[in-house]
Write a protein that binds this DNA or RNA. Structure first.
Ligand code: ZN
Ligand code: ZN
Length: 750
DNA sequence: AGCACGCCGACT
DNA sequence: GTCGGCGTGCTC
């Protein structure tokens, strides 16, 4: 045992361990919980987070802290507690969790940038005289002076561009006393020159009033609680959020609003900016400096409301009274790299530490949240009606099994949809078409021998992209030239099967030549604001038909859209995953909500080979509760979430055999944690409530030359799930041969 | 994660 | 005889 003044420091290494460091007397007053410190580690120095102070340590010799980085704690004790929860819940290192709390720009220390502004010295000699003194000896300095004589004052980067000078010439001129150099802080303001017209509360419907009153009451209680706000698209959920936030601000507290990345548009931001004065935005499209400025603004207490995507849940606000998660069911709130957290679930934990209220908003809540209202854990308020009592659009399901192309092949567009499109377009109304598959055709095969073209590195068929004139793997993004003959039998007949958005675009353009079509998928929407531009062109009416992948299902409402076509509702429903039905239902409801927003009404046509599937029939009648009840029944039978709790363990490596072996080894360890020595199972659970499924080859066995095996761990509660996972916690996750990944509460099992 | 140590194969 | 492969283990 050693005694003294020590700091518990967490480092960003995949080890859930705290390291003790001695605090030298000169740092005693500086070291504080929540500050970053520089420490020696092995033979390098690294940055760590001070998470605790202690007088006693069982480590014999402690090294000294080298430096204290922050003047005030960069993480509050509440946030440290959230990080601790994350590390335990998602089985990641505490350092790894903390690392995701601070944006990289903050870690890099990007703060305000200064720039040199150069001015001619007004007093004293004239420019002519200056040039005369320098004479021809320094032509660059002469050029600088001439340029300055013209403009008077200029920033160094601009001057360097005009007169092709370097800093040393400028310094020499300054030394002669001809010019002055001033460091000026450059700001890169987010909303430079933009004025937000202030709006006050919109009149709200009776339903909205009920919701607002409930949330306001909860906020005033300053007690942790969760409210599920269930409201169809167009029912005015945002207005409810706004009025609730207004109450929070009145009470001197602050609010966080999480929105799916794709919905974080200028219009969304404007809704908040126009209602509240001190709004900060955290978004990936900000420049580094803007992001840093926003973060420090929040940190220094200059924001009442933070609007942002997933990671904004870690916004450094104090006194959080309300956290809103809009489109709560969206999988974008689950991070797909470690730490694999779900911001929705983190928000509930953070709110618990902050004594804050969480509002989960959705037209189609996740089954987890719905279940939590059923068992009374969350409260539920419903907005049944759209604002203005606009009816939800009629949904017609087309059985594509009846639409056969004269005996050969399948018809991508039913006669009925085509006819409806014609009618709609002739009335100068707009059509939205959803096809959840990009590229030209998703399947390339040989007409002679049936050989299917697959990625060389992945176990997945390649997609033909016509414009790029290449075949692309949608898993590893590898591109290959289009084969001119079969790689297997060398016969020249190559067949392209199936329709992606690119091919559908071609087909529709051919059938509707007089109308403007825009294709919107990740191939055509490469640029940062292209998505925004496309939507505004559609809004203006420059485009008649908008064809796209999921990304068209979100965004704002377009009153002139009177027809929505879902070209294939089957892409998700056929996935071998327990969330396939839920995802299908949500997508259909979401896209259906894009129409019927005006007096013109609206219609939705869903093409499917599974017209009787309950996710489709319930979506057709806009019956969320009906769907949820049925889906919960299935989940209960199969003991899937929200009843059973899952974790997925994925092993990958270059050699299939190594991976398989490691997977069996892991499975055995997990089983040992479940099967107790007396033969009973963990916590006395029955066989169907706890166990390990697999190891099995992952549904896509090979990705980027890596073979993948996976295991699913199932338990009745997260607590027991964690007990089981503890048995493999200290396994090497990054060995050379086989890498291991643990995903607690995975979104999908694929 | 890094970065050592250490133990075997194939080279000047 | 050395150079260099990567398996193993530790870091306050
Ligand atoms: Zn062939
Ligand atoms: Zn691939």
């Amino acid at each position: 045992m050693t005694y003294g003044k020590f700091a518990e420091v967490v480092l960003d290494i995949p080890l859930n361990k705290k390291f003790h460091y001695n605090i030298p007397p000169s740092f005693v007053n500086q070291v504080e919980i929540g500050k970053r410190v520089k420490v020696p580690f092995g033979r390098r120095t690294v940055v760590g987070y001070c998470v605790g102070l202690t007088n006693i340590s069982d480590v014999k010799t402690l090294k000294d802290i080298i430096h204290v980085i922050d003047t005030t704690p960069i993480l509050s004790s509440k946030m440290l507690a959230v990080a601790e929860w994350m590390a335990n819940f998602y089985f990641c290192g505490l350092g790894e969790a903390l690392e995701s709390f601070l944006p990289s720009v903050v870690k890099k220390g990007i703060k305000s940038r200064t720039i040199n502004v150069i001015r001619l010295c007004k007093d004293g000699i004239s420019v002519k005289e200056m040039i005369f003194t320098i004479k021809k000896r320094a032509p660059i300095q002469v050029r600088v002076l001439e340029a300055l004589a013209e403009v008077g004052e200029i920033t160094f980067p601009e001057l360097a561009d005009i007169s092709k000078c370097k800093m040393d010439s400028v310094n020499r001129l300054r030394d002669r006393g001809f010019i002055t150099l001033d460091k000026v802080e450059v700001s890169d303001p987010l909303f430079a020159g933009k004025h937000f017209k202030k709006t006050s509360h919109f009149s709200s419907t009776e339903e909205q009033e009920v919701a607002i009153r409930l949330i306001k009451r909860k906020v005033r209680e300053r007690k942790h609680s969760v409210v599920l706000l269930k409201g169809v698209t167009g029912s005015g959920k945002t207005e409810v959020y706004l009025q609730a936030i207004s109450e929070v601000i009145t009470l001197g507290m602050k609010a966080i609003v999480l929105v799916p990345e794709i919905s974080l548009t200028p219009q969304t931001i404007e809704r908040f900016k126009s209602r509240f004065d001190r709004v900060a935005v955290l978004h990936s499209s900000l420049t580094e400096r803007q992001r840093s400025d926003q973060w420090w603004d929040i940190k220094s207490g200059n924001a009442d409301v933070v609007v942002g995507a997933r990671s904004a849940i870690f916004a450094p606000l104090e006194d959080v009274g309300l956290i809103v998660i809009d489109e709560e069911h969206e999988n974008t709130f689950k991070q797909d790299t470690s730490p694999r957290y779900n911001a929705r679930d983190v928000s509930v934990v953070r709110a618990a530490y902050e004594n804050a209220v969480v509002v989960l908003g959705s037209a189609t809540p996740s089954l987890e949240s719905f279940y939590n209202t059923e068992i009374g854990k969350y409260e539920c308020v419903t907005l049944k009606n759209r604002v203005g009592h606009k009816p939800l659009p009629r949904v017609e399901v087309i059985d594509m099994r009846r639409e056969i192309f004269g005996g050969k092949g399948q018809k991508p567009i039913s006669d009925y949809l085509e006819l409806s499109m014609k009618k709609c377009l002739s009335k100068k109304e707009q059509v939205l078409l959803l096809l959840n598959r990009r590229g030209f055709s998703p399947f390339i095969s040989c007409r002679r021998c049936g050989f299917v073209l697959k990625c060389k590195r992945c176990d997945i068929s390649l997609t033909y992209h016509k414009k790029k004139d290449a075949v692309i793997c949608h898993y590893c993004f590898a591109e290959e030239p289009v084969p001119r003959e079969c790689p297997d039998c060398c016969s020249p007949g190559i067949r392209f099967t199936g329709f992606g958005t690119e091919r559908m675009e071609e087909l529709i353009r051919a059938r509707f030549p007089q109308y403007n079509l825009l294709r919107m998928d990740s191939d055509t929407m490469r640029g940062r604001d292209s998505h925004e531009k496309a939507l505004s062109a559609f809004r203006r009416g420059d485009i008649d038909i908008l064809l796209g992948t999921q990304m068209i299902a979100k965004g704002l409402d377009f009153p002139n859209v009177t027809l929505v076509g879902v070209l294939s509702a089957d892409t998700i429903v056929n996935l071998p995953d327990f969330r396939a039905s839920e995802k299908t239902f949500q997508l259909l409801c979401q896209v259906a909500g894009r129409t019927g927003r005006s007096a013109k009404g609206g219609k939705v046509i869903v093409q499917t080979y599974n017209p009787e599937h309950y996710s489709i029939t319930y979506a057709a009648t806009h019956d969320y509760d009906g769907f949820a009840k049925k889906e919960l029944e299935y989940r209960k039978q199969l003991y899937y979430p929200p009843y059973g709790r899952l974790a997925r363990v994925v092993l990958r490596g270059k050699k299939d055999l190594d991976v398989k072996e490691k997977a069996s080894d892991i499975a055995e360890k997990l089983m040992n944690a479940i099967k107790l020595s007396d033969g009973s199972l963990l916590a006395g659970l029955r066989k169907d409530k706890v166990g390990v499924l697999g190891p099995a080859p992952a549904p896509i066995v090979r990705v980027k030359d890596n073979y993948r095996w996976h295991l699913i761990v199932k338990a009745d509660s997260f607590k027991n799930l964690h007990t089981i996972l503890k048995s493999i916690e200290n396994e090497n996750r990054n060995s050379k041969k086989v890498q291991m990944m643990i995903d607690v509460d995975p979104y999908m099992l694929l």
